[in-house]
Simulated assay, not measured.
Amino acid sequence: MADQEQKFEDKPLRYRGQIGDGASDHMEETSAEIAAPVRLDRGRVRNYDMAETTTGGRGIGFAALILSILSLFVAPILFGAAGIVLGFIARRRGAEGLGNWAIGLGAISIIVGIFIVPFFD
């Protein structure tokens, strides 16, 4: 019976459990995961990024607003749709006020062009 019982200390190192005090019959392997590095300032907005974004959106916002105003007088479907699309792009780039006005005027122009103008021609 003494031959059948093996003490924990008699087993080779690879069979000893590293955690706890029981013997393990299998080998376990752990590894570290490889992940992309985490930016520590991901929630912060830098001043030069914000200024660059607002400036880029402002030009597109004015173009969208001009197209939307032009759509009130000439080709409301074409210029109104272009003004709405550019208005959404301007809002995404930071010029929210100009983008909102362009979207609103373009939508009003399309609605007036489709539903009201045909009755007066």
Rank of each mutant, 00 (worst) to 15 (best):
I110E: 07
R46K: 13
I60W: 04
F79V: 07
L67W: 05
S71L: 04
H26I: 13
E9P: 00
I103N: 13
I108Q: 01
W101F: 12
F115I: 00
R42N: 07
D41G: 05
E33G: 00
A75Y: 12
R91N: 14
S31H: 12
T55K: 14
F8V: 00
I103M: 14
A102M: 11
I103S: 11
Q6L: 15
R91A: 11
F73Q: 03
R14Y: 08
I69P: 02
V45A: 04
I69L: 14
E52C: 00
I114P: 00
A63W: 05
V45Q: 05
G80H: 02
T55P: 00
E33W: 03
G56P: 02
S71M: 05
R16A: 04
N47Q: 11
G56W: 06
A32F: 02
G113I: 08
D25R: 03
E9C: 09
A35I: 10
G61H: 02
F79L: 15
G87L: 07
S68F: 02
G87Y: 08
Q6E: 09
R46M: 04
L67E: 06
E96Q: 07
A81N: 12
G83C: 04
G17S: 15
A81C: 10
I77A: 09
I114A: 08
L67K: 06
Q18N: 12
G113E: 05
V117K: 12
